[in-house]
Write a protein that binds this DNA or RNA. Sequence first.
RNA 1: GCGCCCGUAGCUCAGUUGGAUAGAGCAACGGAUUUCUAAUCCGUUGGUCGCAGGUUCGAGUCCUGCCGGGCGCACCA
Length: 587
Amino acid sequence: METIPSLLVQRLHAAVEDSAGLEVQVVPTADSRFGDYQSNVAMVLAKRLKLNPRVLAQQIMDRLRVADLCSGVEIAGAGFLNFRLSKEWLESRLCELRSDDHLGVPRPERSRTLVIDFSSPNVAKPMHVGHIRSTFLGDSLSRIAEYSGHRVVRDNHIGDWGTQFGMLLFGWKNLLEREALEADALSEMERLYKTVSARCKEDPAILEAARSELVKLQSGDAENLALWREMIRLSQGQFDSVYGRLGVRFDVTLGESFYNDQLRVVVEDLARQGIAQESDGAMCVFSDGKHAPEQDPFLIKDKDGWRPNPALVLKSDGAANYTTTDLATLQYRIGEWRPDEIIYVTDGRQQLHFRQLFAVFARWQPEAFQSVRLAHVWFGAILGEDGKPFKTRSGETVRLSDLLDEAEERAFSIVSAKNPELGEGERREIARIIGLGAVKYADLQPNRQGDYVFSWDKMLSFQGNTAPYLQNAYVRIRSIFRKLKESGETWKGGAPMALDQPAEEALGKKVLQFGEVVLQVLADHRPNTLANYLYELANAFHSFYEACPVLKAEAAVRPGRLELCDISQRVLKSGLELLGIEVPERM
RNA sequence: GCGCCCGUAGCUCAGUUGGAUAGAGCAACGGAUUUCUAAUCCGUUGGUCGCAGGUUCGAGUCCUGCCGGGCGCACCA
């Protein structure tokens, strides 16, 4: 199905002489007094041709053929064309939507392949709040791209290699407590890391010992390799359990270590092509001078003028780093999956890194670079009430599993208070869906750029613009159909829909916007647009629910209202699914 | 010093890439339930969109300069 704006854009193109190259825009109106959709095409064109926009608008309107879609088109303000969709057309379109298993999301002309790199936790460390944004955003974008008809490769680029393993190995060999490891492997590994890390700062001998463990690991020492694999195995168990709980899955988990044997080749290649050169004992990529200094990621200005800001691909100790691994990863992904787009979901502090990465890659493999869109989808920090990075009272990072436990616990007491008649098992399951949904929604609802303040009360408040508000709209619909079934009536569906009441009309129009919203989210990688749309949809449903009885409605309108309920629940459920949020049958 | 991001109601935030009279939630106040789930709905109060210029039919949005906050800037990832 095509979206409504794209239908109107086509009609406008047909009505405008010389519309080639003209960017025709149709957007929903801010105020229903101006109709349903508006276009500023006459104003844009008038500026270009230096004509009176209202006169031009009149000319366009005279040639415009939209009688089948609209009950009226008006010229308003400085030269807007306002479209009011006709009741009959809206009703028939809603009927059409029923048989569309994508609920109005258009199929792409060509299915694209997207690699989405997200979550990326570190081995031997517990997952914490810092991982939720990347995990939820990446998961949601994956779901949306897939739903829209694209092929998605979800890649978890875990941190399974690097200097921390020197300390971990030293700790494992000298300080490990077996019972603690068996009870809670992640806590024990975290303890080892912290202890050794602290001792390294005081005692150079320990620092040296840790380094030597790392060198042994990197040179293939059998014992250290075995221990390293054990640490990964234990960590993977934790990842699996957290992702299972979150309903997040990956197609591949290729950590940094996977690219190990390619790093040397990458550096040699860059050096041979003259892209990287030696400086202070390190291999660096400097500016090629082809960009304006302000845009050049390899230049930085200080009081003496522009100075080099190189990307390191080999440290002076001979070890590769983040950029090197990312270059190898990029090369591998393009070769393996031939993607149209690669999306990196990380926090905003890495913007410079990705600008440099993309620029190095463009010089290293120009053809491959041309074949793919590289997108750094970044997000802001989660802050505590004090405006500093969010920590527990004692200064620790908040563990993801603790956060989820707390969310479910709080949800459980509310569910129990509201539904004492339900059995504990059912209340637990409802609390799981609501608690988890609340956490995900609180993270996805704000604009991803910019920081947000973490608040238990806000995250787990179940009123207003929250997941439970949306879930409750769904539950209310389910309740209607449950009652219908209990009364012995069988519902076949397929009745025509009538948008006679204002609340019915408002709800119907909202339902019809799903397709255009999903398209928008995919284009700019912003699931919060979808979250806010679903909030408006739920709001429209709640208002409809108050104003229009369904089961008790008179026979003439009852079947149509049931249809409206059905299509609403399908959009709500699918939309929430795209955010990774489940819906309960009752709550 | 330079770069990126942020600054919108008492608080937390939206604002569809420049559109019409800037919107929600929370908080406060007032209503609605013998009714399909009140985790709801309806209403009231609350704004020099950080400040000052500029661009144009039109600016919260774009440009310039300030102010305030966060982050980044050669061997962490």
